[in-house]
Design a protein around this nucleic acid. Structure first.
Lengths: 170, 170
DNA sequence: AGTTAAACGTTATAATATAGCGTTTAACTA
DNA sequence: TAGTTAAACGCTATATTATAACGTTTAACT
């Protein structure tokens, strides 16, 4: 018998790490990075980043808006999109193109373009440097005579944890 | 002196191939493929595919709608999105996730997920099998224990032709 | 303290996409 | 070949995602 899997349970968040530490670390890193760069991580931007880091799932702009509103009454779409633009410019978040959504970046600042593994069940997004993939890609674009400005490498599927859960429950 | 580059000129279309043949071939292939599969390439679907193949640029759904309307007065957003859904299911077009746009697929049916090289200047999209990239990606996802359902691998930059043009004109 | 640029508030609207339901068309089947 | 069924399409409405434009406030720099 196969049981329905609840996508909110037994996620990265609850099983593998203390998510409070995970978030604090991301925020502290972001704060330092912004100071170093002389850019302003304003309260709104900070809060939006914190909201994005609430989970490792990709989150939609209007979802963020709904969550920001109770804390920031004046929040409007532009409020969120401006904050997202800033956070992307600083490499603090990724835009997940295939979902029109956003996810915190663990590699903030350096080598920002990564492989994103997006689980269809738990919705979590795993970033991977994927060194071999990136070098194969460089070689390929070089052969094509194509000058790269940016990349989006997104894979949808089933993460290891969700596979395990479906095995356990069957 | 660097001259402004007109993105609509000297494209793949005008320089490298007879685009009429290119389109005919794509359409004939699509027709055969649909017959083989027992699915219907209806007049609307056929026309939308033809409109997509008008160029090698990624084209937006509402652009297609505007172009379809003169030929199909009843055309509404759903008309286009249904046709696009069908064409994607059949692997006849690619959705370019990072542009919310669509482009004809040259490899219709087989090994549909390809590397897309998207030129910021001429807007043309080049598909590449990118065998090495794909195998590196398979290895990476295998290492991650991730089961792949679908992929989007999109690179934005400057194609060889547009680089040449900017050199010529400078 | 005055100047300037960045950030933010606010309203409006553009652009992208889907839901739902009735009608027509095409494919199947008896 | 008429009846049945599912697919395709018409149509209306609306949801979702994103940006434009302009005025006000805040913060950084003289």
């Amino acid at each position: 018998m196969t049981t329905h899997i609840h996508s909110n349970q037994n996620t990265l968040q609850s099983l593998e790490h203390n998510h409070n530490d995970c978030v604090s670390e991301a925020l502290v890193t972001a704060e330092h990075l912004c100071i170093d760069r002389g850019v302003q991580l304003t309260p709104i931007r900070h809060k939006v980043l914190e909201l994005i880091w609430e989970s490792h799932k990709a989150v939609k702009a209007y979802e963020l808006l709904d969550r920001l509103k109770p804390l920031q009454q004046a929040a409007k779409p532009a409020t969120i999109y401006r904050a997202l633009d800033f956070l992307m410019e600083q490499g603090l978040i990724h835009r997940v193109e295939s979902l029109n959504a956003f996810v915190g970046c663990r590699c903030s600042g350096h080598q920002h373009e990564q492989l994103l593994l997006i689980c269809k069940l738990c919705q979590e997004v795993e970033e991977r440097n994927a060194k071999e993939v990136m070098s194969a890609l460089s070689e390929e674009t070089k052969q094509a005579g194509f000058i790269v400005y940016s990349k989006a490498i997104e894979v949808h599927g089933l993460c290891a944890k969700c596979q395990d859960l479906s095995v356990e429950k069957s």
